[in-house]
């Protein structure tokens, strides 16, 4: 199955938030009570019922101002820390290379929350489960584009085969020039969500400039996890060898005799 990818071209995003709503509609996620806290952005952050949201960010210098709109949500890593840590297999790679979540298997351990370099998975206390974007897996399986892409009026969101999206992304970044760059193919073995950013990645709030699977997660899952079996196996084998080579440590004969008095 061809790898699928969503391309987010922030230069074309107008912040209309059609995607944010379409996501809730398709995934039947309820709204929560919010209040204006001095920005257009709401809910303030991703939530267990908000899998994508537009981050509104103002950058001002003396003469000019920029208003950046960035659609935040799961990046669908090829080397996904969340999948790596998920104990139950609830988080898993799909045939399209995306990362989906099987909520029935989720045990609410929240390990993915800590592991994700993009701070995406969100825990819901009521259901004791984790939620995040699955790139509308059921829609992809039905040969439809994800709901957010469908809703986007400006063409800021595109969806297709990974190779095509990569080509498109680099072409667009070249067109835009300046600081424009492609974000997403150079780390975690490539993400299945790509950005064309107009500014340097470090300019955007809550977007890691150099994301990676955290070293701690690698030490844990790639080193200690096998090591635990290795060590246990080693000890068992050692004990066995000890038993057959050295033999058990028995009390001395005479004392044994004496002890039996």
């Amino acid at each position: 199955m061809a790898q699928k990818t969503k391309l987010i071209d922030v230069s074309k995003c107008t912040g209309c938030r059609g995607c944010q709503l379409a996501c809730k509609q398709w995934n039947q996620q309820p709204a929560a009570q919010t209040e204006n806290y001095g920005t257009y952005q709401n809910p303030p952050d991703l939530q267990s019922n908000t899998w994508t949201l537009i981050r509104f960010q103002e950058i001002a210098d003396k003469d000019s101002v920029k208003w950046l709109f960035r659609k935040d949500g799961c990046m669908h890593c090829t080397d996904a820390a969340c999948v790596k840590v998920c104990p139950s297999g609830a988080l898993h790679y799909t045939e399209y290379g995306t990362v989906a979540i099987n909520n029935e298997r989720c045990i609410g351990c929240k390990e993915c929350v800590s592991a994700c370099p993009f701070d995406i998975p969100r825990y819901d206390r009521v259901t004791d489960k984790i939620y995040k974007c699955d790139l509308c897996l059921t829609r992809i399986q039905a040969a439809l584009e994800p709901a957010c892409v469908k809703a986007c009026p400006t063409g800021a969101l595109k969806f297709g085969d990974r190779a095509d999206m990569l080509k498109l992304a680099y072409k667009r970044a070249a067109e835009l020039g300046g600081n424009a760059n492609v974000y997403g193919d150079k780390f975690v073995d490539g993400t299945h969500v790509l950005y064309v950013l107009q500014e340097k990645p470090s300019t955007y709030e809550k977007l890691p400039a150099n994301p990676s699977v955290p070293l701690s997660i690698i030490a844990w899952k790639d080193l200690l996890k096998p090591l635990s079996l290795l060590a246990a196996g080693g000890v068992i084998a050692g004990s066995f060898l000890h038993y057959i080579i050295h033999g058990p440590k028995l009390p001395d004969e005479d004392q044994n005799h004496k002890g039996g008095e």
């Binding site: 944010q20 709503l21 509609q25 309820p30 929560a32 919010t34 209040e35 204006n36 709401n42």
Partner: peptide, 12 residues
């Protein structure tokens, strides 16, 4: 419409 009210919840 709760989804819309959630995004723009009030007078600013």
């Amino acid at each position: 419409c709760p989804w819309l009210a959630e995004m723009q919840p009030g007078m600013f």
